[in-house]
Design a protein around this nucleic acid. Structure first.
Lengths: 145, 145
DNA sequence: TAATATGTTACACTATCCGTAACAATTTGT
DNA sequence: ACAAATTGTTACGGATAGTGTAACATATTA
């Protein structure tokens, strides 16, 4: 799954859980709702549970339950929970300069530039939370603390 | 080549050509300078010549020559010349919603969000030209109009 | 004890990336 | 005229990464 697909998939699942709160939803229920493989969903939601965004319970009545208010879950934190790489993968060629001709300075320059871009994206993502998304899509949250 | 690697490679090559102006440099000369395969360089520079960023000449004394002032070549235009995809590839899952449960709205939402991000990046790239890069790296341009 | 769920790993298939090679077309030098 | 060098383009094999699925240990409930 690409990083962006992971993010949108996670958001879809979390919105469904907000809608369903406090009823637990199994990975197969979520799968049939949002059209993503149940096994892949468990992988994603497992990561989100490690960041306490959702809770999970095994067993016949188990499933996933939203654990944070949609106000308190922004896209950046979702992204960080499910992807170890940075906001998106930008790299420069790893040519190692043996002749001291300044190529390593180029690589530093672009590494810095791409880091800047990533920070911009992260800031944009921080300003969008789950509630924002749900409001814009007309989805009602049943989450209560 | 990833999009970001293409961009940094192209900039390295163009800086070398600015340094060498008006002397043409062959793809193998550029290759040994910046450590990228000569064939791949020709592919990149061929695209840049179609946008008149460089000129190329065949034959024994041929090679590539910078054709635009470093002031007039920004990173965004380089990017557009060498990559047909948008600034970076962001996509949502292509699940087609047969049950009208609102998944397509999600996909639209994220497509819009990612388009916004791309515009931000493009604007950032527009504000950086070849001269900026060369100045910061202490490379002197010999380009003259 | 059977059924159902998560959590994790693995696997085959596919697609993409990457470096390189090959070669026609063109131009120059001798 | 001919050899040499270069661009421009296509192709290809190996490596790498993405995708969907399966499998199964573990845990929980009825």
């Amino acid at each position: 799954m690409s990083a962006s697909t992971k993010l949108s998939t996670a958001v879809k699942a979390l919105c469904f859980l907000a809608e369903s709160f406090p009823e637990p939803r199994s990975s197969s229920q979520i799968s049939s709702r949002i059209g993503v493989n149940a096994s892949k969903l468990r992988q994603l939601l497992s990561l989100l549970s490690k960041q306490s965004v959702v809770t999970s319970e095994k067993g016949m009545t188990g499933g996933f339950i939203l654990n944070k208010s949609p106000d308190d879950v922004d896209l950046q934190s979702i992204y960080c929970a499910i992807e170890d790489r940075k906001a998106f993968h930008l790299d420069v060629s790893k040519y190692h300069d043996v002749e001291e001709n300044g190529i390593e300075k180029f690589n530093e320059y672009f590494a810095d530039l791409f880091a800047d871009v990533q920070i911009d994206i992260e800031n944009k993502m921080k300003n969008i939370n789950l509630k924002t998304v749900m409001d814009q899509l007309g989805i009602k949250s049943k989450f209560k603390k």
